[in-house]
Amino acid sequence: MVNALAIPWFTLVLVPIALLSMIVPLDFLRTFAAYLTEKTMQILNTIAEYAPEYYPAHAPLALWLLAMLSVLILLLPRGWYLRPLCLLILLLMLSYRPPRPAQGEALVRVWDVGQGLAVSISTAGHELLFDTGTAYAAQSVLLPNLRAAGIRQLDTLVLSHNDADHDGGAVLIKKQLQPKKIITGQINAYQFPVHPCTAGANWQWDNVWFEFLNQPVATNKKGKNDYSCVLRVVSADKAVLITGDLGKKGEQALLKAYGDKLFSQILVLGHHGSRYSSDAAFIRTVAPQFAVASAGFANPYGHPHIQVQALLAQENINLLRTDRMGGIQSTLSERNLSWQPLQAYKPYWQRKPINQTSRL
């Protein structure tokens, strides 16, 4: 709505006056152009502070085509009798909401935030986000995609631990999506109210079970990784286990506390597939069907590490990688597990090489 006024003002008034002031060497003309531009920007900045923002969800292609056709009809000199229908179609597009998971189902999205982690869990009526990626990734990738998915508010934001590639976007996500509750593994690391993720804490949303499993691990003050929240989500007979940057000591503590109860069909690999996580006994006990490595393309750490890849191959576990596949999603339900890319089609300049050599 602002652009509807601002674009004609810039195009028909400000730019012509600015160009004229460069052609005609009159000081008052240059001063007038600068004055108008400064006042315009002041007004726009004031509006930006108070005007509500609206972000429509990503609509299906058919609805986009209908909306484009409606705009063309609205611009025609005739056909006024179709304009009410066209306006209705545009309103329908702006109010579109993607379908929600059914009761007892959970939609798991692993977002491609480069070298970082961000996993969202959607149920029939609730939204949880586990980590935010870096501040840059949250601003440029995560937040726009969450809005495109129709997520306007979070019920719970989990910040696994205080590391820039996991909670770098916390302030932005907190401001824009206003989570009702924020849970973290390091409560003293934040300037806003947070709750600790404690082992045994659990709740249900829409017949989907959520539980924290993390165990205290002896670590030095600089070691943040083993403070990571560990979240397990169960829907029907399927489960996903997310461990943040948990290292092998933390994984061994989980084994000691829970044993075979850690079994999950989906495991989001600790520390992006680092060799300092993914203990062999832990992997065999969780026994996932799919292991997901959230890592950046051509990252300097060689994640997921070749040793981890070899272990997963040895255990016949399917490895999914955001650095090659982009964001991916799956639904926990009574149906068989399957994974789909979050973006079905990518133009050639966004495609990543299929084969990438992992570093030792």
Rank of each mutant, 00 (worst) to 15 (best):
D226E: 00
Q115P: 03
D245T: 00
Q307R: 11
P16N: 01
N45G: 02
R83C: 06
N3A: 07
F10K: 08
V194A: 14
Q42E: 07
I242C: 10
L44Q: 15
R284P: 04
Y136G: 12
I187A: 14
L87E: 00
Y190W: 14
V286K: 05
F212Y: 14
A253R: 01
I17W: 04
C86N: 04
L72N: 13
W80V: 13
L26N: 04
T31I: 12
G327S: 11
Y227R: 01
T134V: 01
L5W: 12
Q265W: 02
S333L: 07
V217I: 07
M68N: 13
L177V: 02
V217C: 01
P8T: 04
T132P: 04
D323C: 07
Q103W: 04
F130E: 01
A57W: 03
L342E: 11
G327A: 15
A124Q: 10
Q42M: 03
L12Q: 06
G200S: 06
R275W: 12
S235I: 03
E251H: 11
C86P: 03
P56Y: 06
R275L: 14
A138G: 11
Q314L: 02
P25N: 06
A293F: 12
F210W: 15
G250V: 11
N214G: 11
S278V: 02
A313S: 05
L117D: 10
G104M: 06
I266L: 07
G302I: 03
W205A: 06
P98S: 05
G247W: 10
I183W: 13
G168R: 08
H303G: 04
P353Q: 07
Q178F: 12
G150Q: 06
G327N: 15
C197K: 11
L254R: 00
V110E: 09
T322V: 06
K174D: 05
L117P: 00
Y276V: 03
T243E: 10
P341M: 04
N202K: 15
G247L: 15
Y301W: 12
L36W: 15
S140R: 13
Q289M: 08
V24E: 11
G104A: 09
V292S: 14
Y96E: 01
V268C: 05
F290W: 14
L154A: 07
H126D: 05
Q329D: 12
Y258Q: 10
I187T: 15
S294D: 15
L320T: 12
L82H: 11
L177G: 02
D226F: 00
Q215S: 02
A170F: 00
P288Q: 01
S333M: 06
K238Q: 09
L157D: 08
V13R: 05
L172S: 13
L269H: 09
N355V: 14
R147G: 15
D155H: 06
E315T: 00
K238N: 07
P98D: 04
D237E: 09
L320A: 14
T40L: 12
G273T: 10
P300E: 08
R97W: 02
Q103A: 12
G250Y: 04
S235V: 02
Y96R: 03
A57Q: 04
V240L: 05
P216C: 08
F192N: 15
I354N: 15
A313I: 02
D131N: 02
L20T: 13
R78Q: 13
L255C: 14
A149K: 04
L332A: 01
D245V: 00
